[in-house]
Simulated assay, not measured.
Amino acid sequence: MIFDRFCLQILPEIHDKTTRLDLESSTMKHVLRAVAYPNLHVLGLYNIDEESIRCLFTGKLFLFKANGRFITTLFIAIDKNFESYDDMLSSAAKIFDGILTVLTRLNALALRESSYKNCVRLRFNDSLHLTFHSSTLLTSNVNLLQGDIRNLKNFSLSCDFRTSDCNEAILPLLYRMSNLEQLGLYLLVYVEQAFIDGNHLKRNIINRMSRLNQFTFSIISHMYIRNKLNLPSTKDIQHTFIGFPTNEIISYVDYFPEAEQGQCHIFSYPFLMERYPDITNNFPGGLFQYVRVVSLFDEHPFGHEFFVRIQKSFPFLEELYLTNHKSQNRKQFYESSSDNPNLSVIQYSFLTKLVIDDDYIEQFLFDTKMYLKKYNYFVFRMNLYHE
């Protein structure tokens, strides 16, 4: 009687003010069916199983046709009553696939602990066949059943989005891997006081992991520079890698006065990742044969010679993203392109996707100095920041 009164009387009074619901499997269908929730943005589903997913997201009920349109954050705890761990993974994959197919605006997903005992954890030592795809998902928080990971020999961690939890989350995890021999870290990190440099890696990783004999990394640290004094130069950062026990290390620093930010990129060479983000005019060049996706950003204009350097450094480039509101001087560009027969022709043989600001359209579509062999996807962003 109490639950019926809640659904029939209370929910209709508050449905348009409800922004978050936390529901468990035995009541979720009744609550979601009772009324529409036009302002529902956050949803928690607990002890959920495949049958519940089918009721919520498919078939005649399809309860999220109205209620799921604006959900951006989802917390979920999956029913753990499985005969085997493989069965659990298979079920979890179907659940995630059903959810992400319908919640098309979802940008944060958490597989998390709750007051319920039946929640799913994933383990490092699994050959994980739990895969799902979302074009909108920006944040994922998954509880990993780490258990005894002292015998782990090889570990690699890569994240394409910036994090501020390096010291609080990543380093404590690494310290539990006392027998680690090979480590790869590929991170974009927010820092408050100082860039991540060679001294930081020596103090917090190299000196704390006695068995480590191979360490590859690419770490870009971003920092607000307002009111900060004695900011380090590229030479200062490179000096911190003297005596560093690994392969060749490359580093460079950029400062962006308009944004009041600075960034420092340190990486071991050769570079093994498929993505290279946030390249500026200070990019030193080299050969990056594994890279397929590149993004460019600066507060200073990119010149023709810069794009020559990019083409030579990334011979197998497939996707290029360019953000720069400072355009080249048009007269200078045309004069250098038309009157200088020795100016190098840039050929992107494998480029299939190009997203650029409109200030650089001439640079990429000027027939005599730029050759795009197999492009098939262009996006030109209109620059609203012209002076």
Rank of each mutant, 00 (worst) to 15 (best):
D160Q: 15
F283E: 03
V142I: 14
L174M: 07
T139S: 14
F161T: 13
G286D: 01
S156P: 01
E274A: 14
N213S: 09
F283D: 02
Q289V: 13
T234Y: 04
I78W: 01
V293M: 13
Y290Q: 14
L21K: 02
Q146H: 07
I78Y: 03
K326H: 14
Y334H: 13
L173A: 08
K60M: 11
T19F: 03
L63R: 01
Y375W: 10
F307G: 00
F314A: 05
M177Q: 07
Y377K: 10
N47W: 01
C7I: 06
Y186R: 09
T136I: 04
E260M: 14
S336G: 08
S218D: 14
A169H: 02
F124S: 03
S26K: 13
D367V: 11
L103Q: 02
Y377D: 12
F62G: 09
R20C: 09
F132L: 01
I205H: 03
T104R: 12
N107V: 04
V379M: 08
S349E: 15
N282K: 10
Q261S: 09
E181M: 07
S251R: 05
S91V: 03
E168H: 02
L272V: 15
Y116S: 12
L109H: 01
I78F: 07
L40W: 02
T27N: 10
C55H: 11
R203M: 07
R162W: 05
G184F: 06
D87F: 02
N154C: 12
F302Q: 02
P277C: 07
S26H: 10
M28G: 04
I249K: 04
E192P: 00
K29I: 13
M382N: 15
L180D: 04
G44C: 08
L174K: 02
S178V: 15
N329D: 15
Y377C: 09
F161P: 01
F333E: 11
G198Q: 06
Q347M: 10
I76C: 08
V355H: 14
Y385P: 00
K312D: 13
C55T: 13
S115L: 07
K374M: 11
I48D: 01
D278F: 14
V191L: 02
Q146D: 09
L322K: 10
L317R: 04
R208I: 05
V191M: 04
T323A: 11
K17P: 00
V308P: 00
L322P: 08
S344W: 00
R211C: 14
S336C: 09
D339C: 11
L157A: 08
P301S: 10
G286W: 01
G184L: 04
G285Y: 06
D357S: 11
F62R: 13
R211V: 01
